[in-house]
Design a protein around this nucleic acid. Sequence first.
DNA 1: TTGAAAGCGTTACCAC
DNA 2: GTGGTAACGCTTTCAA
Lengths: 342, 342
Amino acid sequence: MVPRSTIDDVARLAGVSVATVSRALRGLPNVSPATRKRVESAAAELTYTVDARASSLASGRTHTIGLVAPWFDSWYESKVISGLEGVLAPAGYDLLVYAIKTSVRPMPILRERVRSRTVDGIISIDVFFDEEDADGLRAFGVPLVLIGSRLSYGHSVNIDNHHGAALATSHLLELGHRRILYVGGAQDNEMLSPVSGARETGVRQAIRDAGFDDAEVLEVSLDGGFSIAGGTRVMKRLVERADPMPTGIVCGSDEMAMGLIAEARRNDISIPERISVVGFDDHDLADVLGVTTVRQEVYEHGETAGRLVLETLGDDAPDSFVHIDAPLELVVRSSSGPAPSR
Amino acid sequence: MVPRSTIDDVARLAGVSVATVSRALRGLPNVSPATRKRVESAAAELTYTVDARASSLASGRTHTIGLVAPWFDSWYESKVISGLEGVLAPAGYDLLVYAIKTSVRPMPILRERVRSRTVDGIISIDVFFDEEDADGLRAFGVPLVLIGSRLSYGHSVNIDNHHGAALATSHLLELGHRRILYVGGAQDNEMLSPVSGARETGVRQAIRDAGFDDAEVLEVSLDGGFSIAGGTRVMKRLVERADPMPTGIVCGSDEMAMGLIAEARRNDISIPERISVVGFDDHDLADVLGVTTVRQEVYEHGETAGRLVLETLGDDAPDSFVHIDAPLELVVRSSSGPAPSR
DNA sequence: TTGAAAGCGTTACCAC
DNA sequence: GTGGTAACGCTTTCAA
């Protein structure tokens, strides 16, 4: 075990006070160049490193940002983490991750984190607080950035789900599709229901805006669960049932779309000849697999959120918030095409 | 801003000393049931939460584990994070993540973390230390678990890359393939070269063990970079070149396999009729896309690693280490089949 | 079973 | 420009 050296050791070796060591090492002003040099070499000689906990206790900041999300093993979350890490690390901030299972209310966890002074700020992904929660968070005065949701307290980074779904739908309508299925739903995870709901509304709206009767054109399947398996499940059911198949499908996520497309292939249902499929996200594999999709820049969402927390760290009672409307773009690939002639 | 209450407030309200509050709240013995009750309700009334930094400073433990990996936006890492989080959180440990870019030596970062007492233990994914690093780590006496690499210091969770690649190769050989391409390489990221190398050796060995001349049967492409794009790139080159195509391809990762398969389809090269492809990992989409692969249980790797660090936390100079050889299994799907007749 | 008090290693304020 | 010294909020002996 290497004997850990403290600020006192450095002070002694450099022949100055601990106060001076602290100032010198942090690059604060009011330290003569000569002294700073001496302190620095003393620190180097002792391989001294500031004790983060002690520093934290004395200064009040932990230099740590907490990330809360329902889970971390999905494509979306991993992209956000990367983006976040990319901006936090260079700024000297650590990233702490907490998964909150769908069934648990998020607030107690956050309260814990904030009160225990474990983190200086919080970023959430797809966590849906209510206004009561907002008041609680406001009371803490903690920097907060919500990705994928919005609140009266805290910054937010969102996409216009409604619009995105409408983009996908209009694309299908323009291709002549008149029997459309929207696959969304959060059976596997209740947390995503607001997202699924907004996208469904967008689909419906686009159909109406195009002058069609959504009750006639649209069918909705809400057990896709935003997962690969969910997409597969939906396609399986379509194959088995007696009703006519939809000719166009809008999926709430690329993963559902991929599951669905793969199952279609297995059943010799050619895509896009018989069914056109549009996903959502622009998953890394969407391009490779030719999935037409509504693209969102997830890595950038993480970066933006990271920048926003960092900016807010100074203010101890943030009261004006930025709400970012992140860009969305329809990317047409080979999974969509003209509706079959009859 | 809510006024934060401290242990003193609780002590005052409960009419006991701070020492007693500390003991009572942590469930230590030697506290009368009545006192404990009083302390607990006082704490509840004040919504008191222990200050993690202060607690940490006084006790010596941070209840935080650091995870180091080259990046976090890939399938593999996200699975490991999930597995880890699943065992750390219930045990009351936080997970801190650090991405280390390929070009940077990992040691300085770890040293920083350990000396600053930011983490109680460290888990790494695909970080390749040398023995000098090992001595450094040993000197810190910090609990360490390496996933995907091995060192004379620290526990490790590994798969037998050599064996896995051999499984894939034997499968192809048994199907009659006699012109095999191994796609690996770490052009995009030098960190993975040991993995790529081990797999290549495994392929070569399997060919020899089957009684063939590897120089004749095997071709190697080392710019797959373990990425989707890399797989695509390799297939593109195969299509363009004059040499005969291999009939069987072993890819170092499913992502490369998927990129490669997609590009093959685009060029009307049917899989597995003309080329059989075997991947590595059992990526979530491998099943859906019918990729034959060598499966590894990544989520479990995370869980195991988590358990190992937690177990080691007590010992302050760990000297006996566990090296887990995680299971591997060939999963045959539709991307592989008999070699074409001529 | 309970309490007093000495740390834990910094930072930050206030003199000098 | 530099040093002394209270905090920071808790844990942990050691006595009582």
